[in-house]
Design a binder for these strands. Structure first.
Lengths: 233, 233
DNA sequence: ATTATATACTGGTATAGACCATGTTGCAAG
DNA sequence: CTTGCAACATGGTCTATACCAGTATATAAT
């Protein structure tokens, strides 16, 4: 085993909680007790607990003990997630229609945003997204070809984030989003079943992997009346 | 002195960095050296460094040392700030014109959002905000009267956040924002010098103090073409 | 001058003990 | 039965020390 002892203990405690040994609100044994059980010093045991507290899995109270925390909702939303998860979190059935799906040379803007080298190709797809079969947004997503190499069209279209994680082990780190408002063009209005000039919430998002590489540039136009973006900061 | 030693050391190192003793990229003395300087054990010194690392002020590299990190831009944006700071951060001169400023009974929506008791009064003000003298937004802010008690109209209007912190020691904790898009009404279009029906970015924000009490409910309508909201998550 | 190697130094992990402030609990006095 | 207080348990802080795995650098061999 390569990893430090406190990480191993961290994992064991985490697994025990997931296995149901302790439920939300339960008090786990004291630091001194656990230190004996795991045959480590109290400081080392504390370090294991510390990491679990930082993950929001445990809460500590002086004089009372250490308890299994109830997972906060905004925690789940704070991560970088795609449209699919966003809709599911709001209890709506997500679906989408792919308008176009082509490999092509990137635009200047795309080269810049995705930090592409001169000769790289990209996959660009246009989609209309629905929540409970009502059109919510029109989006143009651009992805470097190397990222989606070996993935099927369905895998890319359906749930890119999940596929990248399971098939390639690529995990989104952070994202930069630019939000503004504009009016719907004739073409977009058609797709979204609204009138030309209706209010559009524009979102441009650059998603980065945990190592800092940009892997997706998405320009989304949301129907103003049908979408609300909720943030906690 | 009440606070733990490692917090005191944390503050001293932080102050030293702010005072320019070390610049971005500089290596600070090793943990062992600093431990001697501050007359504490290395473990205690490490705890002080740890908190600074968590704040993003320092970076550590095994074998190399501990360095002053370059402050990331999103750090400054991640806090809850008002319009004034937002404009200044973008190099624009903020100004505003107060349209109305009244103490009144809250609406149902305001009671709910601000978790008001039945009999409390609120201060409601409507303002047009400018950046370099170009109208950027129209906003309606509602604040429980008890929060702004004893503050002058100018203090509340000019820079509420700063005044609350310096005069009352109230520090904003987190905020919940709801973003959507709509079209400008006749009245709002007039104030913002745009046409009726032009795109509006709507932002409703509930700001909470660090203890969780809501203290401000703001509904802002930004001119779509003149404003972009940048987020990092 | 270049390359290998040894050495010193760095932060990371781990120990075993100590004391503190706060929260909990059980027992005694009313 | 309630109240108050003492004893205990808990997490928070701190010490002094040790060894480890990377990094940097001075030194020696080429």
């Amino acid at each position: 085993m390569g990893s430090p002892v406190y990480i191993q203990i961290h994992n064991e405690i985490k697994k025990a909680i997931e296995a149901g040994k302790w439920s939300v609100g339960d008090r786990i044994p004291s630091e001194r007790e656990l230190a004996v059980q795991f045959h480590v010093s109290r400081m080392t045991l504390r370090q294991a607990i510390q990491t679990l507290v930082e993950e929001g899995i445990l809460e500590r109270f002086v004089g009372s003990g250490t308890f299994v925390a109830n997972q906060k909702v905004q925690e789940k939303m704070s991560g970088v997630t795609g449209f699919t998860d966003l809709m599911l979190a709001q209890g709506k059935q997500p679906s989408s229609k792919t308008i176009s799906y082509h490999v092509m040379s990137p635009s200047l803007s795309e080269v810049e945003k995705l930090k592409l080298k001169d000769d790289t190709q990209v996959l660009r797809m246009e989609r209309v997204r629905y929540g409970d079969d009502v059109p919510i947004s029109f989006e143009v997503a651009t992805i470097p070809l190397e990222i989606v190499e070996g993935l099927s069209k369905q895998e890319v279209s359906e749930s890119l984030y999940r596929t990248l994680e399971t098939k390639k082990g690529l995990i989104p780190g952070h994202a930069k989003q630019m939000v503004s408002a504009s009016s719907a063009s004739e073409r977009i209005a058609e797709y979204l079943d609204i009138k030309r000039g209706d209010a559009i919430l524009r979102l441009r998002q650059i998603s980065y992997l945990q190592d800092g590489r940009p892997f997706e540039y998405v320009r989304t136009q949301y129907v103003g009346e049908r979408f609300e973006f909720i943030l906690e900061k």
